[in-house]
């Protein structure tokens, strides 16, 4: 653990610097190799534990109904039922549902990108009366159980004639999600103020500083925001359930629920559909990572 933590703070360039300051080059190489391998062993062990559920879901998705709970349980069904995947996709328009979810993700992401940096910058950098109270007020909106707001909000959207549209499902994002605002505030507060001051001396206004100086440095936080927005919108079941009527407009979260009947769940099909449905979330995350790693620490290296 200790070795790997050490490695956590070493990047290629740092390593270079260290090379010059120390004499025992070979010793470093040995240590590096040891660090590498211990880190890999540790991570592989944890990864295996984290993968068990996924493997189990996968094996369930390939079984017949009678095999799922057979004794003794088997990890690999004798005859893998790949047709479960076909059946899952033909029984409901899952591709359509996933497309709908994607549309919702895009709309929400746009909303968050428009609102969150602006609001967070205000809280993090600008000085004005009652800031602390307003900030606490903002945090407090996360503390009330969401279910209590369902009926009043439904009533409001219904009066506005917005039931069976996507509006209730993305409009709030344009007014900032407290979680992301808070995240962004904390992030901006760790960015040195010298950068702002330097730009101000050069004649940049508040908004220029926000969008030209601060925001580009917030890439990791913005990436977290996009990854989480994707995840939450993808998994949100209650909101679309409450606001949508048209079967063809349902997102994947609601679509998956159709595999649960009143009396039983078709576990094999359900697992097949669930597995396929989480793929986009994982793929997005896989590619988003390169924006997650970087930011100030990289900037510091050049300077």
């Amino acid at each position: 653990m200790r070795l790997s933590k050490d490695l956590g703070e070493i990047s290629a360039a740092q390593y270079e610097a260290r090379r010059k300051s120390q004499r025992a080059n070979t010793w470093i190489t040995v240590r590096r190799l040891m660090g590498y391998s211990s880190a890999y062993i540790l991570m592989t062990a944890i990864a295996l534990v984290f993968m068990i559920p996924l493997l189990w879901m996968f094996s369930t998705s390939l079984k017949t109904r009678a095999d799922i709970f057979a004794w003794p349980p088997s990890w690999l069904p004798d005859v893998p039922m790949w047709e479960n995947y076909v059946a899952a996709f033909t029984s409901y328009p899952l591709a359509r549902f996933m497309l709908n979810s994607t549309i919702l993700v895009v709309l929400n992401t746009i909303g968050e990108l428009v609102s969150v940096p602006l609001i967070a910058y205000g809280f993090a950098r600008l000085r004005f009366p009652f800031k602390k109270v307003l900030f606490l007020l903002m945090l407090s909106t996360m503390m009330i159980p969401g279910q209590i707001k369902l009926i009043p909000l439904y009533s409001m959207y219904s009066r506005l004639g917005l039931i069976d549209t996507y509006v209730p499902l993305f409009l709030p994002s344009f007014f900032g999600n407290p979680f992301f605002i808070f995240l962004m505030v904390q992030y901006i507060r760790t960015i040195p103020r010298d950068l702002d001051e330097a730009a101000r001396i050069d004649g940049a206004g508040t908004w220029t500083i926000l969008y030209r100086i601060i925001l580009p440095l917030c890439k990791p936080a913005l990436t977290v925001m996009i990854v989480f927005t994707f995840l939450w919108v993808w998994n949100d079941f209650l909101q679309p359930l409450i606001y949508l009527n048209d079967f063809n407009s349902y997102p994947i979260s609601v679509g998956l629920a159709f595999f649960q009947g009143r009396y039983s769940v078709e576990w094999n099909m359900f697992m097949a559909a669930t597995l396929v449905s989480i793929l986009p979330v994982l793929v997005l995350y896989f590619f988003a990572q390169k924006h997650l790693i970087g930011g100030i620490s990289a900037l510091g290296l050049k300077g």
Binding site: G8, Y187, T190, P220, V224, I293, S297, G300
Partner: peptide, 12 residues
């Protein structure tokens, strides 16, 4: 992931 983002903000 959030810690990871925070770690990126520590100047090298």
């Amino acid at each position: 992931i959030i810690y990871l983002a925070g770690l990126q903000n520590i100047p090298a």
